[in-house]
C-alpha cells in the first residue's frame, strides 16, 4: 500500500477515486508515566515515554486507515493528514485521514 501526503504520485497516475478513508485511536497515558512527566516539568527535557506512546498510537491509526482502504480495493492513499486532540484529561485522540485511490504505472 502506497501512503503519501501529496496529491499526486510521481510516475503514476490515479485511475480511480474511492473516497475518504480514516483511522483513529484514543489512548490514555498510564499513571506512572504521568508522575514521571510531572517530575520532568521541573527539570525539562524530552518525555520519551510520551513520544513512544504517541508514535505507537499513530502507527495504530495508520494501520486502521490502511485496512479501510484495502476493503475498498485501493492500492494507494493520497493526501494523508494527521490530527491530534486531547479530548479528556490524560487521553488523546490521534486521527488520520486521506483519500483512497487506485494508481497505475504511467
Amino acid at each position: 500500500m502506497l501512503i503519501s501526503n501529496m496529491e499526486v504520485v510521481p510516475g503514476k497516475k490515479v485511475v480511480k477515486h474511492l473516497g475518504l478513508v480514516q483511522g483513529s485511536t484514543v489512548r490514555a497515558k498510564h499513571a506512572g508515566r504521568d508522575i514521571m512527566a510531572g517530575l520532568k516539568n521541573i527539570f525539562g527535557g524530552e518525555l520519551k515515554g510520551y513520544t513512544e506512546l504517541l508514535s505507537e498510537s499513530r502507527d495504530e491509526a495508520l494501520s486502521r486507515l490502511q485496512q479501510q482502504a484495502e476493503l475498498l480495493g485501493a492500492n494507494a492513499i493520497l493526501n494523508v493528514r494527521f490530527s491530534t486532540s486531547s479530548i479528556a484529561a490524560g487521553a488523546s485522540e490521534i486521527f488520520v485521514y486521506g483519500s483512497a485511490v487506485v494508481v497505475e504505472e504511467r
Partner: peptide, 29 residues
C-alpha cells in the same frame, strides 16, 4: 513544496514521520 519537480518522476514515494514530546522546566514556567 506540494509538487516535486520533474526530476523525481522515476522515484518511489512513501510517508515518513518524526515526532517528539518536550517538557518545559520549572524556570521556564
Amino acid at each position: 513544496d506540494k509538487m516535486p519537480p520533474i526530476e523525481f518522476q522515476q522515484h518511489n514515494s512513501t510517508l515518513v514521520t518524526g515526532s517528539v514530546v518536550i517538557s518545559v522546566d520549572y524556570f521556564k514556567t
